[in-house]
């Protein structure tokens, strides 16, 4: 589990399940669907009571889920949904990414005082990120209708969701848009990569960054004033919610097909109060 986000989901699933006297086997597919499929097959052999998945690929994971269906094992998804219509998933728990994107737009307008040119560091291969940028652009359009507001998206480039690539892409954006005022980076690694590029170019004060996630490194950067704000996700809530749903299901109750966990805006003042950063 290279991403601390998934690790936190898994840790919280483990903690919540332990309270019910269930044990948890957590594995990482390292974003390789074939590997994930093998892991699911191994789970089926072990006859687990339920499987929680963060699909490595929303479409290609279908056959593996169907195999679990055929073995009578209930499947739950967290963070990333399965898009295979024939694969039966009991319930899906994820961040409300659309709302999160909208919060990011609020924060951006707030940071720029209503006026400026912004860039988006995108990662369109991922469904949840598409929702974030969609929410951002929608809300920005709404806010721009207010008199005096004028925040323009001047560039939208793929930062790969990682630091190294976002660093390079941000450097290129500064070259073509020297008058940039803000960046919306779709996750913390992209935001931090962008920050590094801006510091390098001596533009860190001119360009405000809005990230996404609220990973420890991102929160620390917000506290230090390097990122203006993040709509933060709550992987701990995702993890404990999934377990709650599993036990609701096994206890013979109706289970909501989809549960969205709201994000919250996290600014410098929140960072100063945050005990986890001390």
């Amino acid at each position: 589990m290279n991403n601390p986000f998934f690790k936190e989901i898994a840790d919280n699933i483990e903690m919540a399940a332990k309270a019910h006297n269930y044990s948890v086997i957590a594995t990482s597919a390292d974003f390789d669907v074939a590997k994930q499929q093998n892991q699911i097959k191994d789970f089926i052999v072990k006859k687990v009571s339920a499987i929680v998945l963060c699909p490595a690929d929303s479409k290609a994971i279908g056959p593996a889920i169907r195999e679990a269906n055929a073995a009578g094992i209930p499947v739950f998804t967290a963070d990333i949904a399965s898009l295979d219509p024939q694969a039966k998933v009991v319930a899906h728990v994820a961040t409300n990414n659309l709302e999160g994107g909208r919060m990011a737009a609020d924060a951006m307008v707030e940071a720029l005082g209503g006026k400026g040119n912004v860039a988006i560091l995108d990662h369109p291969e991922v469904e949840s990120v598409l929702l974030r940028t969609k929410g951002f652009e929608e809300r920005l359009a709404e806010l721009n209708k207010k008199p005096g507001n004028d925040v323009k998206v001047v560039a939208k480039l793929a930062g790969g969701g990682d630091k190294a690539k976002s660093f390079k892409v941000m450097q290129d954006i500064i070259q073509s848009h020297p008058d940039l005022n803000g960046v919306f980076a779709i996750n913390d690694p992209s935001a931090l990569g962008a920050r590094a590029a801006l510091e390098n170019a001596g533009k860190a004060a001119q360009v405000k960054i809005i990230g996404f996630d609220g990973q420890p490194e991102g929160k620390k950067a917000i506290k230090d004033g390097k990122i203006y704000a993040d709509p933060i996700q709550f992987p701990d809530k995702i993890g404990s919610k999934v377990v709650e749903l599993i036990f609701q299901y096994l206890d013979g109750n109706e289970v909501a097909k989809q549960t969205l966990i709201q994000t919250a805006l996290y600014r410098q003042a929140d960072g100063a109060k945050d005990a986890s950063l001390k």
């Binding site: 974003f31 390789d32 669907v33 074939a34 499929q37 690929d57 290609a60 279908g62």
Partner: peptide, 16 residues
């Protein structure tokens, strides 16, 4: 064979 196992094709198969 991989595509058949996963019933789909994707450019990120086979990494490493």
């Amino acid at each position: 064979v991989t595509a058949s196992q996963l019933k789909s094709g994707s450019p990120n198969y086979g990494q490493m």
